[in-house]
Nucleic acid binder design. Structure first.
Length: 464
RNA sequence: GACCCGUUCGUCUAGCGGUCUAGGACUCCGCCCUUUCACGGCGGCAACACGGGUUCGAGUCCCGUACGGGUCGCCA
């Protein structure tokens, strides 16, 4: 086992871990914990371990595990050891580590630190002050014997007598989280335990276990929690809570990492944008992690994604948007795609927005936005305006930006009106909405014949 | 309820005793750019939870109160 933990002259290699339970989705809080662990390990030339805590057989599922692993990979948080990666400290599923747990359980038995209670097994907690020396929260002192001697009965709303000794094994022989978590961290040589602050109060129990096993303590760092905007706990139902939704909604992993890193951590300066994990890595330090909880702001996350989209090189931009434009029914190999993407880029917060903006370029089956249509058709003389637009655009002999603009101008001149009054009707007739990318380049990409058809069609559909 | 952690603009934060009439970012508002919509530029609104100390001097250190969060499972 970990002989390198003792008597070595060189500093112990840093090993961090992320230990999800495959009972649900990859949550933004969990992903951020994984990110901090990954960053810390990489920052110190160490290793990042993934361990699946599937001791709850009834609730653990393969689907859940796939979602969590896929999410981590999407974010770029590759693990050095763990499921599908292997390593010298496996197995990396708790459900397969029974023999190891038995061995550690025997150690406690030999020291007479466990006893049976109603079929379950309890671990005797020491009657002394245990100090958690936390990298973020400072020194936290707790006496388990004292604090555990009473319990809050939520239903009766009163304190009741309790056994401070913690249950580590169920009557069916399976082991409890606190026990397996500590055993695995010892066995896997984890040097730094970075996890959510909800575990801070559990840490004295873990320390008692480390001491009972005669193992060295890892360094603990409890990071503050992310809450909803209203201060409540984030749950799966909340916007922005689930990593797979970021994937589906057209976020870039770099942007999500950027946002997660900055909620609860700061390099100390004003820097807001980090375009890669490497950039974050250069600045990351546990000392920059805040001690207070933070509230999740989806708007800022979207803004950050928009900034990342703007900064993307053209080829990479095309690559990451392809699945979204395909989903919108656009052929990604269409020659007009690159130019279309650039038109949409500056006004998109997500890749899904991109597809939405450029769709009118590629399909003639426009989804006319009713308020937009009403805004245009409500004007006096709109029929003649639309007809003039179609006539002049049809006569255009050079379908290029300035020439198209000149045609619109000519249409306006023919009725003695200003060009500005013609832009909106033209936009709605040709694209279906008052909102969208620059009109003239859009018309150019749609093509002369189809633009004229759409405008005439608009006239017959809405103005007759 | 007990124990633990926390508290700077609505939100994310900078600030580690004097440089703070508290800086940046998101949101919101206004102006400019633009013959659409955005982007961009400029500007504006907006915070040191409260009360005591310590100190020549406190957003920064200490104590208390209030508020928020967490833990108190044979869940992880």
């Amino acid at each position: 086992m970990n002989s390198n933990r003792f008597g070595t002259l060189s500093p112990m290699p840093v090993r961090t871990r992320f230990a999800p339970s495959p009972t649900g989705f990859l949550h933004i809080g969990g992903a951020r914990t994984a990110l901090y662990n990954w960053l810390y390990a990489k920052k110190h030339g160490g290793e990042f371990v993934l361990r699946v805590e599937d001791t709850d057989a009834a609730r653990s599922t393969d689907e859940s595990q796939s979602i969590i692993l896929d999410g981590l990979r999407w974010l770029g948080l590759e693990w050095d050891e763990g499921p599908e990666a292997g390593g010298d400290h496996g197995p990396y599923y708790q459900s397969q580590r029974g023999e190891i747990y038995e061995r550690y359980f025997e150690k406690l038995k030999e020291k007479d630190l466990v006893y049976e209670d109603n079929g379950a097994v309890r671990f005797r907690v020491p009657d002394k002050e245990i100090v958690v020396d936390d990298q973020i929260c400072g020194q936290v002192t707790v006496n388990l014997k004292e604090t555990g001697s009473t319990r809050w009965d939520a239903e009766a709303k009163k304190e009741v007598e309790a056994n401070p000794d913690i249950v580590i094994r169920r009557p069916d022989g399976s082991f409890i989280f606190h026990f397996v978590n500590v055993v695995d961290d010892i066995e896997m040589g984890i040097t730094h335990v970075i996890r959510g602050e909800d575990h801070l109060s559990n840490t004295p129990k873990h320390i008692a276990l480390y001491e009972a096993f005669g193992a060295d303590l890892p360094t603990f760092a409890h990071i503050p929690l992310n809450l909803n905007k209203d201060g409540s706990k984030m749950s799966k139902r909340d916007q922005g809570a689930l990593i797979h939704e970021y994937i589906e909604n057209g976020f870039l992993p770099e942007a999500v990492n950027n946002y997660m890193a900055l909620i609860g951590w700061s390099s100390g300066g004003d820097r807001e944008l980090y375009f890669s994990l490497d950039e974050i890595l250069a600045d990351f330090d546990l000392s920059g992690v805040n001690a207070s909880n933070s509230k999740f702001d989806y708007d800022k996350c979207k803004w950050m994604n928009a900034e990342h989209i703007k900064a993307l090189p053209a080829d990479k931009f095309k690559e990451v948007s392809s699945s979204f434009i395909e989903k919108a029914g656009i052929d990604p190999t269409d020659a007009r795609v690159p130019a279309s993407l650039e038109l949409a880029r500056e006004r998109s917060e997500t890749l899904a927005d991109i597809a939405k903006i450029i769709t009118p370029i590629f399909t003639d089956e426009l989804a006319y936005d009713q308020p937009s249509v009403d805004k245009v058709t409500g004007k006096d003389g709109i029929s003649t305006v639309v007809t003039a637009l179609a006539d002049h655009l049809e006569k255009n002999s050079e379908w290029k930006g300035d020439a198209i603009k000149a045609s619109i101008q000519a249409a306006a001149d023919s009725l003695g009106q200003k060009m500005g009054a013609f832009m909106l009707p033209c936009r709605v007739a040709a694209t279906g909405s008052t909102a969208g990318a620059d009109l003239v380049p859009m018309l150019e990409l749609i093509g002369q014949k189809r633009v004229v058809e759409r405008i005439r069609n608009f006239g017959t559909t809405f103005l007759s």
